[in-house]
Amino acid sequence: MSDFNIHYVARLARIALTPEEERTLGAQLDPILGYIAKLKEVDVAGVEPTAHAFPLVNVMRPDVVEPSLTQEEVLRNAPAHAGGLFIVPKIVD
């Protein structure tokens, strides 16, 4: 990843970094990216990927309404709410 651009990736990850953090994190990520690139040595031709060690497919529960958290409980941890809604900055002018 020689063209690794920390500023670009941090925006993708929605993390604001100070210029100082960009320098430190960028410098620390360099050897890590170099280290993980060693997987290029492995012959993976014809190998299926593993997403979970024990893949279970189509785990369903019965389609029945069950009790859940109340609106009050859900909003209790919200940084800003009013009238049963989360308050966010204006999105459309």
């Binding site: 929605r14 100070t18 994190l25 990520l29 890590i32």
Partner: peptide, 17 residues
């Protein structure tokens, strides 16, 4: 996220991204 996460968490999220 810039203010709330510490350095290692930022490092891993950026690596993962």
């Amino acid at each position: 996220r810039g203010a709330g996460f510490g350095a290692e968490v930022k490092r891993r999220i950026i690596l993962g991204t």
